[in-house]
């Protein structure tokens, strides 16, 4: 008998691995907030799929959400180029508006749509073990596990197949373009993968935690290594570790599992931030080699 703990851990780990894999490229490409934008903007897609099929069928939801993920990317580019706004400004306009639109749709059709804002924001990973997939009368285990597994396989295939292209693209799109790599295609492919991973994880872990899983483990790995392949592996490992330890933290505090997983990704990042052999703040102070790479133009104070 497989326990519900096992299913929750498996769901969390699959989501974490998927997100960390594609999130690594977002972090390298300096487009981390695109994950945040997509995870919010898919809400109307999910609501529309829900209204059209009047069921919680996963496939239409994935389609609806995927479409809105790409719409977000497209409109952000559109407002950036045609509206001559900064990239983050146009992103902020697009995703908050789409989110607002989604909330309105949900409240307009509250009777038909069995979704609420809370589930969208925190997810309901605790109910995963009861969301079973019955196929030909056979109990195949929780449905989200299958979906997340499929998305992970697709992401692995995407990254494996286009590894070289993605690598060059991640470090320098201009150079990639000069080598004849179809940069636009790679960009939309990556955004498509981000959308799918986001949506697949969304239901279980919620919109904000998806952002934590997409960005924080890759950022942690980025502080530990400079090579792409170890970074991808480390990011996935950190993601899975956060999922597992977050679950037990949640049990201990009797609090939200999704929130605890996000907190654990932060704890691992803090560890790397302080103690990374190459980049850690304390390590550098100890060695007294303050070899800091050029920081971005940013000062909050």
């Amino acid at each position: 008998m497989i326990t519900s703990t096992f299913w929750i851990l498996l769901t969390g780990s699959l989501a974490a691995a998927s997100c960390a894999l594609v999130g690594s490229f977002l972090v390298l490409r300096k487009q981390s907030m695109m994950g945040d934008a997509i995870s919010h903007a898919v809400l109307p897609g999910i609501a529309i799929a829900f209204l059209l099929t009047s069921s919680r069928n996963t496939f239409p939801m994935l389609l609806g959400a995927g479409a809105f993920g790409l719409i977000t990317v497209y409109f952000t580019e559109f407002l950036h180029k045609r509206g001559r706004l900064l990239h983050d400004t146009s992103m902020g306009i697009v995703f908050t508006s789409l989110f607002a639109f989604g909330v309105i749709l949900i409240s307009l059709y509250a009777a038909q749509v069995d979704l609420d804002q809370e589930c969208v924001l925190y997810g309901e990973i605790a109910y995963i073990p009861w969301d079973l997939w019955i196929w030909n009368g056979l109990n195949m285990g929780p449905r989200p596990v299958w979906i997340l597994g499929l998305v992970l396989v697709l992401n692995l295939a995407f990254v494996g197949f286009f590894y070289k292209e993605l690598k060059v693209y991640a470090f320098s799109p201009e150079y990639a373009a000069s080598l004849g790599i179809p940069v636009g295609l790679v960009h939309y492919g990556l955004m498509g993968s981000v959308s799918f991973s986001t949506i697949a994880s969304f239901e279980s872990v919620g919109a904000i935690l998806v952002v934590a899983l997409l960005i924080v483990p890759p950022a942690t790995a980025y502080l530990l290594t400079e090579k792409l392949k170890p970074m991808l592996i480390l990011a996935m490992a950190t993601g899975v570790l956060s999922a597992v330890s977050g679950y037990y933290l949640a049990l201990f505090l009797n609090a939200s599992i999704a929130g605890s997983i996000a907190v654990m990704t932060g704890v691992f990042f803090l560890g790397a931030y302080l103690f990374s052999p190459s980049d850690g703040v304390l390590t550098r102070r100890y060695r007294k080699t303050d070899a800091l790479p050029e920081p971005d133009e940013f000062a909050v104070l």
């Binding site: 907030m33 502080l223 990704t265």
Partner: peptide, 16 residues
Amino acid sequence: NTRLSTDAAIGMVLSV
């Protein structure tokens, strides 16, 4: 203190 970009920092703080 790190090589991470501004938007990564924003996303991390936001979600964590």
